[in-house]
């Protein structure tokens, strides 16, 4: 098993070293926030999820022991679970309607952000498991083995999720282009 690059840092966080806490936040916050933003499509909710993830890190750092997964995979799993809780709550409150989308044309730097918004909308429109797979492998740059472990699926199942997800995205984005 390859060494976990975060293991020593987590041990120091568990021992209550303030410098280690700062290093861990600087190292992991951008990744956690990016994951939550892309999973939820909502920056405010994503910030809440990032804060909750860190509360769990502080709570478990002292007792955290590496099992089969690296620390980075573990925090990704924690973040994804928190995102799922919110997505479930959304489904309970919003009956079938997609959240209101921002009109890209109304934004000041519309041409630049238009494509990003389309991708964001397309990502929110595909199945959550496919979205998870694409976000972990494509945006979080996890290896196939790490992503499969985080999603608790086999590598073959991960590949299937990725391929179906990319096909769906392509279809949605192609449809978007055809509307213009």
């Amino acid at each position: 098993m390859a060494p976990d690059p975060d293991e020593e840092l987590v041990r120091r966080v568990g021992a209550g070293e303030p410098a280690a806490v700062q290093t861990l936040v600087a190292r992991k916050l951008p990744r956690i926030l990016a994951l939550a933003v892309r999973m939820l499509g909502d920056a405010t909710e994503a910030e809440d999820v990032a804060q909750e993830t860190f509360v769990r890190i502080w709570r478990h750092a002292a007792s955290w022991r590496r099992g089969n997964a690296r620390f980075d995979s573990w925090i990704h799993r924690v973040t994804l679970n928190l995102c799922y809780d919110r997505l479930r709550r959304r489904r309970e409150w919003v009956t079938g309607d997609l959240p209101e989308m921002v009109d890209p044309a109304a934004l000041p730097d519309a041409p630049h952000q238009e494509d990003a918004l389309r991708v964001e909308r397309a990502l929110q429109a595909i199945a959550p498991r496919q979205r998870e797979a694409i976000v972990l492998v494509y945006y979080q740059e996890m290896s196939n083995i790490e992503a499969a472990a985080t999603l608790q699926v086999s590598v073959d199942a991960l590949e299937s999720l990725l391929a179906r997800g990319r096909r769906s995205l392509q279809a949605i984005l192609a449809g978007d282009g055809a509307d213009e």
């Binding site: 920056a43 494509d115 964001e120």
Partner: peptide
């Protein structure tokens, strides 16, 4: 197209 979707870095307040 996927690369065009970037997420802003966390702000100081959140940090």
């Amino acid at each position: 197209r996927l690369d065009s979707y970037r997420v802003d870095a966390p702000d100081k307040a959140l940090h």
